[in-house]
Design a protein around this nucleic acid. Sequence first.
RNA 1: GGGCCCGUGGUCUAGUCGGCUAUGACGUCGCUCUUACACAGCGGAGAUCCGGAGUUCGAAUCUCCGCGGGCCCA
Length: 851
Amino acid sequence: MELPKEYDYNAIEEKWMDTWQDSMYYFDQNSQKPGFIIDTPPPYPTGNFHIGNALNWCYIDFVARYKRMRGYNVMFPEGWDCHGLPTEVKVEELHGITKSQVSREEFRRLCVELTTKNIERMRNSLRRLGFSIDWSNEYITMEPEYFGKTQRSFVQMYANGRIYQQNHPVNWCPRCETAIAFAEVEYDSRETVLNYLNFDELKIATTRPELLAACVAVAVNPEDERYRDFVNTEIKVPVFGHKVRVIADKSVDPAFGTGVVMICTFGDKQDVRWWVDHGLPLRRALDKTGKMTAIAGKYAGMSTEECKKTIIEDMKIAGTLYRQEKLDQNVGLCWRCKTPIEILSERQWFVRIISDEILNTANEVAWVPDYMKVRLENWTGTMEWDWCISRQRIFATPIPAWYCTKCGRAKVAKEEWLPLDPTQVQPPEPCECGFSGFKGEEDVLDTWMDSSISALHVCGWLSNRNLLLPAQLRPQGYDIIRTWAFYTILRSKALLNIKPWETILLNGMVLGEDGHKMSKSRNNFVVPEEVIKKHGADAFRQWAAIGGTTGSDIIFSWKDVVAGSRFLQKLWSIFRFSLPHLSDEPAPFTPVDLWLLSKLNRLVKDAIEKMDAYQFDETFKAIRGFAWEILADNYIELAKSRLYGEGKGKKAAQYTLFITMETLTRLLAPFLPYFSEEVHSYLNQGSVHLQAWPEVDGSLINEEAEAMGEQIKEIAAAIRRYKSENGIALNAPLNGIELYSSITDASDIAGAANTEIRLKTGTPDIEVVPVEIRPNMKNLGKTYRSKARPIAEAFKDVDPVPAGSENIEIEVEGEVLTIDPSCFTVIKEMHVKGKAVDILAVGNATIVISR
RNA sequence: GGGCCCGUGGUCUAGUCGGCUAUGACGUCGCUCUUACACAGCGGAGAUCCGGAGUUCGAAUCUCCGCGGGCCCA
């Protein structure tokens, strides 16, 4: 059978993608094998699978395929986190409408339609990348089967007091017109203006004069001598004329501005703290769209910016504003639309955060890499408010609650009524007050409420099968530790009091080739489809494996992808050479065979250790190094003459090559699913992905065999180098080689050198001259400490010839020391005694080549 | 402003519970089409391991300070 010379990745990958059956990767509910459930991140169905996702999925797939081969019953589910603002925005854009122009149901229908289309596109990308996804465990959060669970989780947490409703200041995006959680606030530094105002008898400095109407107090530091007499007096707010109290609070910085600060409801988070601490009243100057309210008088209806501009002008004219200076400040922005957020007090639903519960659970989970846990701890430590889970949007899980139109009381649904949309259906029982008229809750849930039960869902929660929580693995990016990881732990504990997973595996961010975050504006954006088109999925997966250490950021690099495709070609060439020579018939091994098999078994052992520690780069590099350097560059070169000849070692080489190729194929399977399947199809029946991981044959790991093989390899390499340096063709015979060594079988060397080799014992007829004594600092330092360096220096002056390999007596700092041979190495050179030969020294062996 | 990670040949990178000649890839230079592979093989050049101080017989590796980069956050 003649294989094509070039590895046609495209044809082969497409072929296997069409051949493979989804059922190969189904999780078996009735299996006796140990389970391995992966809490795969459900991506947002934008329609395009991002390269960062692709990296993460590569990691997941390496683990899933490896664990399957190691005998686990693996579940690698695929979820889709459908709800959220980006889809709403996209739908408005596509149809040229705003959400208020159509009914809620119609708008929702359009969102579902778009999402369904996007999911279908992304499924294709996932398949093409060769991910062994269990499609029987796919979940889609916008479907009633899933969001019904989100709603039931809401009801359960309401029942156990973890969810409550309250009027509380929340972060508010005036553009999206919704509340958002702290986790969704981004910060950016901007330049703003600090305005100095005459405030009755005081002078204050503020960056937000437009909130003057919302001023509820003025604060000074209690230590500040300048203002001591004003504390607890009332002063008049300029422009609006209402009176506010002067309060003392030690968190006021006397050095900032005038040392007097106005407190508004609400300019920023600090205002909220003061507002709570001092029990201040609420003055609402902003509405939900970010426009000024009636209390802003003539400024009512203006946007904050218009109001700011106008009021500054007015105050300048009135002489209220007497000074302005520039100030750098950090502004909170909505992470989706980058609009500066406001803080509004509204009735919202909250989830109670219990920091200790999160921290304790985080400690029960293994973090890979471990330093990532600190990020969760730091975030948890900064939580000031509970998690606001209500959103004023449409495309999301409806909050299953109603308000009685008579008494206003909130009625939360019973679990058995779910799933439902309270704006579409009425509760089947009356309010506690006896009245039966209800208005459905129009607020919906934060999408993290959907995705934070993913672990529970895939583990069988609220399904008619066994609950298998905790899952074994949560793979995710470190950028969503404060959200997805945090919320998942919270919910798993709140609902079931079980940790969600045993291990969390963090992947880094993919950076563009310029070392910066990939973004369209930087023009460093690469999509997986482009890479696959140019070099195939197996090459892409190699970049993911070796691009960087697990958890660290990894720079996308075309070079690495190209190197990956070259390795595929190299492997293909190895296989193409090997195929006609393979035999599964055992035969007695030669030293070189034993050397290869020892290396191979060591590799398998190594790979298990590294894969178990999620060190994909190390694993793949070890396998690649074995295939390229040990197998291709050395073993094949050495065994070639046996394979082409008809001698007694032929069968052993064929058998060794068979074992090696077969094992190597299985080791490569998690990384190169397409390539390994192709090769496997020539060697065995069935899919390589249903095979077991290679066993380690400990009896074949043998130091002596390795040392012997290593020496043979070194000798062959030395002869090859000799030919290369002397301009002799590599296949040209030499006049003759004498080999002085402990080697008993030099047939492979002879074959590789294409020269007859005479084996000799003892010493050749040459002079061995010690030329240098080189210190062994490790031993020397341990023994002689501060004298180590002078001793090393003194070695230079010792005559190496009589020194031999015995103890050396040396005088250092007036003291005579006896240094034993473990502290130094005698370097020798060989000199010819009047013969026309060249001498090569390799370890203890000496090669004498007749010219 | 805080936290986390990082700074190693031209480029990217391994190594970091201290120890001899610092790993590999790409690039580069030279030789070679050797019955698997020129997308290759063989050989070479190329590194004050960011700077400074300290600990130590000995530091890329540990400690401190500084500079620079990235990310997450306030």
